[in-house]
């Protein structure tokens, strides 16, 4: 930990500070957007978008390397594919619900396959692993600015339309009866998720974005009294997991993204197990109070019970 602290303040290691800032800025998105993704139960949709992004990255790398579009940055290809995937998913979810599952899985698989094919045909060496699992040490100042802008937009939208977002997630039909444009809320959520996935994949990678969008807010959900508390709790937890993960990865010389997700996943599983254990104890306690005779009869021999 001391080594990590020294590295943060070492002027010759700006990428360590960038990584920390990226982690903290990402935590806001993981917490705020993650809470909405979790309660709306659209983690599968976000997963499909995040995996389709590899197709865009591969295409951009190929077009750039072949000088078809010189200097095309991978993030632009990622953004195009993410928005396209979100548009297709949004259309199918709203207009052809019965096909939703198939289309989501198809986008998931096709996006990744197209990405792998483009990368395979790209001259020179491109490592798909760095896109799948991210490399936080490559975060640039431009990435930080973009993350800060997206944080501001997401926090503003969550604050401004909180009652409509909460109602749409809790009971969509009722929200529609009250005049809330629930389809627009859904499409906006998908669009923001698509853009966030593109920026966040730089940090934790395509595969792990979806884990970080669900694990911190899911963990916070066990203690939160409402959606706002889940957003704030998710943000705090995501920040703790991220900083802890960065410090651990620095100390253990391991990939930062994977370490962050392992910490977040362990915390979620531990809290889930504790909650399940506590809930079971409470149920048993209620049963004993409702049937006190049954509890005493446990220790009584069957024959003796019959006689009594």
């Amino acid at each position: 930990m001391n080594g990590y602290l020294s590295a943060i303040f070492d002027p010759s290691l700006p990428f360590v500070r960038n990584a920390l800032l990226a982690g903290l800025l990402s935590a806001v998105l993981f917490g705020t957007l993650g809470a909405v993704v979790t309660v709306k139960r659209i983690a599968g949709l976000a997963g499909a978008i995040s995996h389709a992004v590899l197709g865009g990255i591969g295409m951009a790398l190929y077009l750039s390397a072949k000088d078809i579009i010189p200097g095309l940055p991978p993030i632009v290809g990622a953004l195009v594919f993410a928005v396209l995937a979100a548009a297709i998913i949004g259309f199918v979810s709203l207009k052809a619900k019965q096909r939703e599952d198939t289309v989501i899985n198809a986008l998931w698989a096709i996006g990744m396959s197209v990405g792998v094919l483009f990368i395979a045909k790209t001259p020179g060496y491109a490592d798909p692993m760095s896109y799948l699992f991210g490399n936080i040490l490559l975060v640039s100042t431009r990435d930080l600015v973009l993350l800060a802008i997206l944080d501001t937009v997401v926090v503003f939208l969550a604050w401004r339309y909180y009652p409509q977002i909460e109602a749409s997630a809790f009971d969509e039909e009722f929200a529609r009866v009250r005049g809330v444009p629930t389809d627009a809320v859904f499409i906006a959520t998908l669009a923001v998720t698509a853009v966030a996935v593109v920026l966040l994949q730089t940090f934790v990678g395509i595969v792990m974005v979806i884990a970080m969008l669900t694990l911190p807010s899911g963990t916070a959900g066990y203690a939160a009294k409402n959606l706002a508390a889940m957003m704030i709790g998710g943000t705090v937890l995501a920040a703790v997991f991220t900083v802890g993960g960065l410090a651990a990865s620095w100390a253990l010389d391991m990939p930062a993204g994977a370490v962050v997700v392992v910490i977040a996943g362990s915390a979620f599983l531990s809290v889930s197990a504790f909650a399940a254990f506590r809930s079971r104890n409470r149920k048993n306690g209620k049963k004993s109070r409702n049937n006190p005779g049954q509890a005493t009869a446990v220790g009584v021999l069957p024959g003796v019970e019959k006689q009594a």
Binding site: P163, Q164, E166, A169, A175, R178, G179, P181, K225
Partner: peptide, 24 residues
């Protein structure tokens, strides 16, 4: 729609009855 994992209190559910299209 009833999600047992949705963190929300009774008063917040009832308040939705006063929800308006875009008023915060």
């Amino acid at each position: 729609s009833y999600d047992p994992a949705f963190p929300i209190s009774v008063i917040e559910v009832v308040r939705m009855g006063r929800l308006r299209t875009s008023v915060r």
